[in-house]
Design a protein around this nucleic acid. Structure first.
Lengths: 213, 213
DNA sequence: TATTATTTCATAAATATTTCACGGATTTTG
DNA sequence: CAAAATCCGTGAAATATTTATGAAATAATA
């Protein structure tokens, strides 16, 4: 469940934002001051924070700066949602460490899209380590290793490409000539089917050795 | 060196953007069509892309969608820079997988700040501390020294850059050509793999000598 | 110039990739 | 049905690529 913290001293704005985001199936927490935000953040770190700038006591810019100095909150995406709309304001907000800046009054559709873009970006990087899982096999493209249950096996790069292709096309009958094109990038009708067999054999040997350990 | 690719069919806009970004000490590549952008991206992946929407042949939205389907370009931050300014346009652009959306005519200061915010977000996760610790190794970027347990070893600057890169990417399989680009900043497919090996060897010698002391 | 750092070259060893050869099982074909 | 062709597993050899190691050439620095 994606969790969003919204901080604004205007109860009406806060309610609107809360309603819209809940409709999007986000889990929303609403607070009306920087102090409350801080005490919430001590307990848990949301996936994204919406922040007003003009607030009594501590303003949004100050809060944002403060958070960015704390290593726990460095990855937290922050989106300013504020009536201050001059170029200087925008630049100031972004320079304080925010990730996006939306001016009130805002179009709900745009706010939704910008929130989605920020969240997407967050998950995009994590997903990027390209692990592919299928039954007991877990394939990691960074380390070039296969984990079978939890035992790791070292693969060569061709074996890795082949296994990855097979795992990406499970339950499919793949002819040698198809694999030569897909994995080895040979032109059609070139390449030796023996090549595929040799590698399939080596793969099997390594994987089977892993299983009964 | 941070590298930015700007794509726009309007030569004037392109020139302005190029000039401004070069002033910010970015390395900028300017192209005037989606096709040119694609052929550039085949060769190298920049740190950020600025993209116009309305272009002859392939438009920016299509290009963006296409890139997001390719795992190599999933992490690439994309910022739309376009005259299409309705809420629907913005939502459409962000939904196509972009990270930000700036409307022409734009304030240069805002564009700068938004670019900086996107880039900052990219580097934010990799902690850029002066000292980096991994297992027994502690690397200090100020003094160019490595402490192994508590014995210090003197490294040359290339060795230091290499070791730092390796420590920042633990458990990853890194090819010599990858390292030539990442550590030596050679263009793709240039540089001698022997170079990497020579330095790896020297590093090993120094580190291993440190361990059995 | 002397010293050190960086890069290139040469060669051997290790590994990875590809090709070849044989035999049994299965399928195709006359 | 039987001969021929094909498929698939296996052993092994040939080739290519990568890696380790010694050493020398070039570049940078003091």
């Amino acid at each position: 469940m994606v969790q969003i913290l919204a901080v604004d001293d205007d109860a009406e704005v806060l309610a609107t934002v809360g309603r819209v985001l809940k409709n999007e199936a986000y889990e929303v927490t609403l607070v009306n001051s920087a102090a409350q935000a801080l005490s919430f953040l001590e307990k848990q770190i949301p996936d994204l924070m919406l922040l007003d700038i003009i607030m009594p006591e501590m303003d949004g810019i100050t809060l944002c700066r403060k958070l960015r100095e704390d290593s726990r909150f460095i990855p937290l995406p922050i989106l300013f949602l504020t009536a201050k709309g001059s170029t200087d304001d925008i630049v100031g907000g972004l320079d304080a460490g925010a990730d996006d800046y939306v001016i009130k009054p805002f179009e709900l559709a745009e706010l939704r899209a910008r929130i989605a873009a920020l969240l997407r970006r967050g998950t995009r990087d994590k997903k990027n380590d390209a692990v592919l899982q299928l039954n007991d096999l877990r394939l990691d493209s960074d380390t070039y290793q296969v984990y079978i249950d939890d035992f790791s096996i070292q693969l060569t790069s061709t074996e890795h490409r082949l296994l990855r292709y097979l795992m990406e096309h499970p339950n499919q009958a793949l002819s040698p000539s198809h694999l030569l094109q897909a994995v080895w990038e040979y032109p059609p009708n070139t390449g030796d089917p023996d090549l595929v067999r040799a590698h399939v054999r080596n793969l099997r040997a390594k994987i089977e050795k892993g299983t009964h350990r």
